[in-house]
Structures are given as C-alpha cells and as structure tokens.
Write a protein that binds this DNA or RNA. Structure first.
Lengths: 265, 265
DNA sequence: CGCTTAAATCAACTTAGGTTAACTTATTGT
DNA sequence: ACAATAAGTTAACCTAAGTTGATTTAAGCG
C-alpha cells in the first residue's frame, strides 16, 4: 500500500500549495491525513447523489466526473476532475450530496475524515480560505461550462472543452507540449463527451470528424493531440483567465513535484 | 439615506444567519460594514469582466445577473441573484472578475470594502466558513443550471427555472403562496430569459405560450403565477434539495425579518 | 486465440429550435 | 397625449442536432 507524504498524495498537497501558498506545516499535516488509499475501477460511483459522506475523497490518479442523472436516465456531466482535487469537498459544509462522483478511468483515491479536516481548519484558518478558493475556481469553471452549454455550437463547444482540459492538464504536468502542439490523455468515450457537452454521441462523432478535417485536432486511441493551440483557442473562443492558471514558474515546480510523486509510486 | 442594521441591509444579514447561523456579534458587525448604498438603474453593469474590485457588492433590492458576453455579442446569463446575496464575493479571493454583474431591475446595492471583510474574517473565522458555504450553494445552483442547459428541452428548461426562482424567492418572502399556487415578480424580458436558458427570444415566446396553454403558468405583466407548483415541479423534474432550503421554521422567521426590514425603509 | 461486448462510424430521416421579417402591444419620455 | 422605443407576438422558412438502425472497429476476456 502506498500511503502518505511520498507517493501520489504529493500531487494533492503540491497543487493546493500552488493555488493558495499554504505554509508547510499545514501542507504536511494535510498530506498525512490522506489515508485509506483505494483503487476504483472505471465507471463506478465513488459518492452518490443523496449520500451524506463523513469523509472527503482526494483524487490521486485518474479522472472522475461530477454528474447528475435525470429521471429519463439522461446523464449530465457537470465537471471533470483530474488528480490533485477533492471533488466532494462540499460535503464538509453541505450535508447531502446533490450529485454523483463517478470514476471515468480507473482511479486511485484517498480519503480524509471530515472530523480531521474540521480540526485542521480550526487550527489553521487559512486552510478554510484555501478550500474556499478551490470552490471559487470550481465555480468559475462551472460558469464557463454554462456558457459552453448554453451559447456555443457543437464544434466550438467540444473545442472549448479540449482547450480547458489541455490547460488544466498542463498545469499538473499531464500534457506534453511541443511548440504550439499539445497532446494529453483523453479517457472519455464519445458518449461521455456527449454527456459533458449536452450533445448526442452520434453528433459528437460527426463533429469530431469535422474538427479533424479542419486540422484542429487528432485522435490516437486514448490521446488527444491539439495541432495548434492558438488556432484551436481562437476557434473555440477560449480565454484561459477563468482557470486562474499559476504563473509559469510555479507551474514548472508543480510539474517537477508531480513527476517526483509519480516516480516514487 | 437609509443605512445600517435597520433598512434593507437587514435582508442580507438575516439570510446569512439563516444559512449559517452566525453569532449575533458577527452578524451585527457585518451589517454595520455595509455602506455606500446606491441605487442603480436597470440593465447596468455593477462590476465588469476583467475588473479587480476592492469591495464587495451586497444586493439589497432588485435582481442582478452574472453573465458573460462572447465575441459575437451573445450573452449567457449564468446566475440570477435576488436580494440578500453578494454576487461578487469571489473577488475577495480571486483578484480578477471572470464575468459581469449586471442589474436586471433597478437595484439598491451596498458595498463592503475587501479590507473590512478580511479583518472581520480574521477576527471571526466562522465568517469565512459562512462565505464558503454561500459559495458552495451558488455552485450547486450552477450545476443545476448546467443540467438545465445541457439536458432539458425548452419547455422543461424554462419551467425548471421558474420552479427554482419561485423556491428561492419564497425563502426570502418575495413570493405569495395560496395553497399550491405561487406568484412572484418576474422582471426578466423574454430576451433575457433566453439568455439565461440558452434559447432564442422567439422560441422562448413560443414555449411560454405552450406552458400557458398547458395551464402550468400564467403571466400578468411583471408577475409569474404558477398555477399548481406540484404539477410544474413534476413537469420540470425539479428537486429543490440542491437549494439547501431552510427548514420551515427558519423560513418563517426569515420572512418576518424581511418584512420588518422592508417596512422600515 | 476466437468470442463477446463496448465503442466508433456511417447513412437516412426527423425534429426542436434558430432565423428573418412583418406586425402589434406595452413602456417610456416629453 | 403623443411620439419614440422596447418588448411581445405571429408566420414562413431553415439548419443544427437528435434518432433509428445497420455496420465496422476496437477492447476485454476466458
């Protein structure tokens, strides 16, 4: 069993640091709280709508989605979470989950009891501020998804999501950039991509082909390759400001930290 | 000029209390910080995308929208704010606004300097938790809007928004209920309703007529009347849990508080 | 390794919702 | 009370996206 400050948990504390500059005692204590690291298979609920969790889940490897399922069985993915985030952090303040947290890939996740987090927040009020800030960034992403769902045609909508994920993945060192080209893992099926963008799987397929024909992206198995990020950015009307990207310097150290963490597994 | 703990400011502190049960010294201090109360005309930006505010805005009367404008000039409303909320609370933690805050109606708004809020949060860490909780509820509402925009057909989408606003307005005593019928002010034009739901103004018009024909809603000038809330709720697939409604008891005291506040203007 | 199941792809057809433009009804301002 | 403007309504037409069903390719799996 891999466990604390070394190993994948590092991904988590290092990113919180980059976003909020936590002091090292907080960051150390937080890393130590992550326990009970488990591996989940793909397409499994970690937390369900209506649950009243007593612990928070930290994504250490793999992707998870927030999603809601309507009566008819239609599923809407409202957010995608990549390693280093706590998708159900809200359960600390809002007792009942209003949505599911579901694995997209096989996922390694750790858990922190609410009680431990509450104690730590009492001891270090700045931790609450860091969590609040995470929630605010999540909110900014949700707003951009609303714009995407409400106002962009299919091709731009999909392109915008690719731009966002490319940017977020690059921040945690999970995208490869060569000049202006970016490639990164893409574990969503076309059906799931449709659930995230509010489009049918068939229309996703058509539109993906259009994007390929325009030379904006390439697909190889589970990888997306953005041929020219500037061109795709312009096409999608993407403005990365809402992601509150870390400055280049911090980003670089994050990548190092991540790679060290992964290497030590 | 009306100003502090009496008058419309009461709407604000009373609601924060209901959501997070702030102790009375905090609530009192917070109410006193709201100054510089101004009246804005309808359709005016209070804060703009890209701004770096040094104060937060408290909505005391009227409605405001969060919105983003795309290059082509299309506007997407991502949230509606009714009295008692701080729409740009995030500016305290995220320096740059990622969206506009625009008045829908004529609006009375007060302002609190960031510095004052920061001091108060340092003195009372539970205030930061209350703000975080507000942000989380905002996030839950945004997720439901994502579902609405991505997964519901026009009639259900509009109906769902009516259900949500009816519920939220009832919490702050701004909806009249007679049995199962609810009526409340509706200041959005059909065009703005389209901007909130990602539909064209013409299609809003068509769909509104369908909802009227089905006997689900009635329109009189600036009022919406829900004929039978249960029926509309069922039609829209609305589940109010995500709004974290106060329990009936608290709700009632809120209404009283609101009415006292309004009466004292 | 072939068998099974899930994704992806393709084509034909349907439909919800967008668009344009003409016209009517409310508001607003003077 | 009037003109001027904004909002609501209606109709005709168009298109982006949904749907159904058949076919191919790729991914697990015993």
């Amino acid at each position: 069993m891999s466990s604390h400050s070394s190993g994948p948990v590092g991904v988590f504390t290092f990113r919180l640091n980059a976003v909020s500059n936590l002091s090292s005692p907080i960051s150390y204590a937080l890393g130590r709280l992550v326990g009970n690291v488990r591996t989940f298979p793909a397409h499994q609920d970690i937390v369900r709508q209506g649950d009243r969790p007593s612990q928070c889940c930290v994504v250490l490897r793999g992707w998870v989605s927030r999603n809601k399922v309507l009566e008819g069985g239609v599923r809407q993915i409202t957010a995608l979470h990549i390693p280093s985030t706590i998708p159900d952090l809200q359960s600390l303040m809002l007792p009942q989950m209003d949505h599911n947290i579901t694995t997209v890939t096989s996922v390694e996740a750790g858990f922190i009891p609410h009680s431990a987090l509450r104690h730590l927040m009492t001891e270090f009020p700045s931790l609450a501020l860091a969590f609040w800030k995470e929630t605010l960034i999540d909110g900014a992403i949700a707003r951009e998804w609303e714009v995407n769902l409400g106002s962009r045609p299919a091709a731009q909508r999909i392109a915008h999501l690719f731009c966002e994920m490319a940017t977020r993945l690059e921040h945690v060192g999970q995208a490869d950039r060569i000049e202006n080209a970016l490639s990164f893992p893409w574990p969503l099926t076309q059906g799931q991509l449709g659930e995230a963008t509010g489009l049918s799987a068939i229309h996703i397929n058509r539109t993906l082909q259009e994007l390929r024909a325009r030379g904006l992206i390439e697909f190889t198995r589970q990888q997306v390759q953005i041929t020219d990020l500037d061109r795709l950015t312009h096409f999608a009307g993407f403005n990365p400001d809402y992601l509150l990207s870390e400055k280049p310097g911090q980003s670089a150290s994050l990548i190092d930290a991540y790679e060290r963490a992964v290497a030590s597994i």
